[in-house]
Design a protein around this nucleic acid. Structure first.
Ligand SMILES: [Mn+2]
Ligand SMILES: [Mn+2]
Ligand SMILES: [Mn+2]
Ligand SMILES: [Mn+2]
Lengths: 218, 218
DNA sequence: TATTTTTTTTAGACATATCTAAATTCTTTT
DNA sequence: AAAAGAATTTAGATATGTCTAAAAAAAATA
């Protein structure tokens, strides 16, 4: 049985490796969960002891099979709860991540099975993030980050890859939501920012934002 | 902001005082949450420090106004989640208490407001236990514990005052549920147990069980 | 390759929450 | 009212999870 801290470390490792599937550094984990690298080092020893990670001192860390299963299940719970909060309780998409950070630690297999069924077995959460199945498989998506589109291309926003409130609130301010249609006007070479057309309105989007928007190209 | 342990102690004090509204003893709290009396003593110091209880060494404890508000809110969350689990996710009434023990600690005022509304502002949980309102008021009920009925009286089960699995599973075995009609045949003076008629079947119920069954007398 | 910088780990401290055993206080019985 | 018994608190220990500062190792730079 995992403690809350152990679950949070495993989930952090998974989250980081979903973006960049390499060995994960102590510093990256520390940053992800806002604790000191020293504390992460301590925890890595415990997780290694429990065979949840592959780890050699100074050499970075990977999830073991067992660790991956457990971490994926936490992510599954997180995203299912986000669906519940948005689809059933009518929360705004920007409000649910922080609450799901708490709900994801509730322990009951039956609860998650029933929640999944109650929600009609969703494949994506309210941010377009894929929900792993019970046995840990992610639905494939073939979407392109907005920063990979070329001038002139058009597409529809299918999801984001960050679901923190500050990011989502900014998207809302830009009139971007899931389903929004975009038309890339031009790309500024200097900083890789782009000008897009949204609802006939010209909008400027930084590269940092664009790379977290998943687009279904027309 | 309360820690999990603090919340559990406050809730324990409230639960005990709902059954018997006197000064609560250290031992009673210890028993309620299955920890040592020594640990409870430690915690009482902390709760006093935070002005959540009225407490003098060796003299037992009461909730302060602030403590009562917080504890009542935890109970409210517990019972609302139990409604959700039974009414929406179709859990059996015996399965939900343990899961609600976890869910009751989720922190989000908006979540509970929305859950309450989603459930249509229930007044009683699946065990017939009253759900306090947002401002801490309990709906009044005028039901009688089964052990106070006299031979010959009839009534309907409206709720229970324990919602642990072992108790509820036993009720199910006795064919007792919310809404069950009972007819008290006779009371055994020796141990205050009673014989009742349920669905034309004679059933023997101990005093210990009978006192936790709330009856609406016909 | 040697030096400097960065990253990671270790060492030592602290807060929380628990325990058992011993001391203290309260309650009951004689 | 004294003694015995029960309840409560204190003392001291342990486990977990965090921190900062210092040491060690790895990576980057000169
Ligand atoms: Mn999220
Ligand atoms: Mn999400
Ligand atoms: Mn309950
Ligand atoms: Mn209940």
């Amino acid at each position: 049985m995992l403690t809350l801290a152990e679950e949070n470390h495993l989930k952090a490792i998974l989250s980081i490796s979903l973006i960049n599937p390499k060995k994960i550094t102590t510093n990256a984990i520390a940053k992800e969960i806002s604790i000191s690298p020293a504390s992460v080092s301590d925890m890595l020893k415990k997780l290694l002891e429990k065979k949840l990670i592959k780890y050699e001192k100074y050499q970075g860390v990977l999830l073991s099979k067992k660790g991956l299963t457990l971490a994926t299940n936490i992510l599954r719970k997180h995203r299912l709860w986000e669906c519940f909060l948005v689809n059933k309780l009518k929360f705004d998409w920007a409000e649910v991540h922080d609450i799901a950070e708490q709900l994801e630690h509730i322990r009951s297999v039956k609860l998650i099975d029933k929640l999944d069924s109650y929600l009609n077995f969703p494949k994506y959460d309210p941010h377009g993030e894929p929900i792993p199945s019970k046995n840990g498989e992610f639905p494939k998506n073939k979407y392109t980050p907005l920063n990979k589109l070329c001038a002139g291309e058009k597409g529809k926003v299918m999801g984001v890859t960050i679901d923190e409130k500050s990011f989502l609130d900014y998207l809302t301010k830009l009139n971007i939501n899931i389903g929004t249609n975009l038309h890339v006007l031009d790309i500024i070479i200097f900083d890789n920012s782009i000008n897009v057309l949204i609802d006939d309105e010209r909008t400027h989007i930084s590269n940092d934002v664009a790379k977290h928007l998943l687009i279904n190209k027309l």
